[in-house]
Write a protein that binds this DNA or RNA. Structure first.
Lengths: 225, 225
DNA sequence: TTCTTGTCACCTAGGTGTTAATAT
DNA sequence: ATATTAACACCTAGGTGACAAGAA
């Protein structure tokens, strides 16, 4: 069995409608997909991997800018042609069950891109489409004709609270604020509670949102030469 | 067969008498021990590891400060009691031969410590003693009674130019300068040739040494109160 | 006196959202 | 009008030798 780590945080994002940035160079997910695993054979080898499947066949649109705080999306038509269905193997694969079970397994090397020609092995997604991450455990069968048992050596786990919309820029300002509040790498954009987060964070108690229009980069205004 | 990477740099250090810092928290080696590997069975599993053996049974002493530029050492007596003979497994172990051969194998996670009670799995060495790094390749024998074949499934490689003296502070100023000149993390201490190194570096052409007594930290000179 | 320790400024390396400019 | 890109300030995380103070 598998337990999703940081479930409370995932739930908080999911309630607002999680968005994940995709870039040409590849962007990590936040929250990071992390799991605790139970019930493996400690001595057997396993491969761990993830893939991403479309939640529906729709393409989404930004809502009018003045509803930026809203979490609503407009359906903009049918989905774009499917992207190459890549998978991401956890870099420690293959490893023994004992190794996988003795600590949290973190997919923090996984990156999302919208570059259809990506050759860094990143996961390719269509922006403005919704995706469901999936987690797969593959038992490395020592038998010679292991291909025949592929079916039974394969187990898939889906956590619906990890669904998200791929975007090139955040659409919902509350998602932006929750990312800033909870991702250590975005600390530079925080306004308040320099020490209250994430130590004393209770899920459900949302952080104070900062004023919308605060300029934090007074430098470098090339001013349209 | 195995080929040592950055051999020219190792030679340059070795000529001066390589020193490696050991600290309580653990310090990486520089140069980093890196190898290219040839002739493995691409489909077989291997473990790669390193250990460190004393070069002699001597303890060394600092020479008088006014000979700081010299690379000479005084023998200070017999070696201290041997440290726990730890080994460092390359973190990617075990992996297929194909995986090991397709790129340079770098032991950049290996750290040296002088803390006999270290529980971070670092290599424990005695300061002021000389050591020879060794590189071992272990074939993971799929046979049930693999223990019996341990002898033949084991191969050791020694590069004498990687010998060094463990120290808590550099003894030879020319070693310090060569470290500063060639280690990217020490760039803050460089005086000259901000771009000539290491791009245009030819082994044998030693970098210009900076003036000995140049204060780069004008702050905090308590001046012997 | 010789050696070790802990702190520090200064780097490398790379993950954030912001912003202005560009593309569609 | 909407979506994407690239440069950037500002972080996290951690690897350097210098230095002063402490230990042996």
């Amino acid at each position: 069995s598998v337990q999703l780590e940081m479930k409370a945080l995932w739930d908080e994002f999911n309630q607002l409608g999680t968005e994940m940035i995709v870039t040409k160079a590849g962007r990590r997910m936040f929250p990071t997909f992390q799991v605790k695993i139970f019930g493996m054979d400690p001595m057997a080898d396993y491969m761990l991997l993830m893939d991403f499947v479309p939640v529906d066949d729709k393409r989404y649109r930004q809502v009018t800018p003045y509803a930026f705080h809203s979490s609503s999306w407009l359906v903009a038509g049918k989905a774009d042609p499917a992207t190459p269905g890549r998978v991401h193997y956890h870099p420690d694969s293959p490893a023994k069950g004992a190794q996988w079970m003795k600590q949290i397994v973190s997919f923090d090397k996984l990156k999302l891109t919208n570059n259809l020609l990506d050759d860094n092995g990143h996961i390719i997604l269509n922006s403005m489409h919704r995706y469901q991450p999936r987690f797969h455990v593959v038992y490395v069968d020592p038998r010679k004709d292991s291909e025949k048992y592929a079916e039974e050596n394969f187990k898939t786990f889906v956590f619906e609270e990890t669904r998200f919309t791929a975007v090139t820029a955040y659409q919902n300002h509350r998602i932006t604020q929750l990312k800033i509040a909870s991702n250590p790498f975005a600390k530079g954009f925080r306004d308040c509670d320099p020490e209250d987060w994430p130590r004393n964070h209770r899920p459900g108690a949302l952080p104070l949102m900062s004023a919308f229009a605060r300029s934090r980069n007074p430098v470098a205004s090339p001013a349209h030469q």
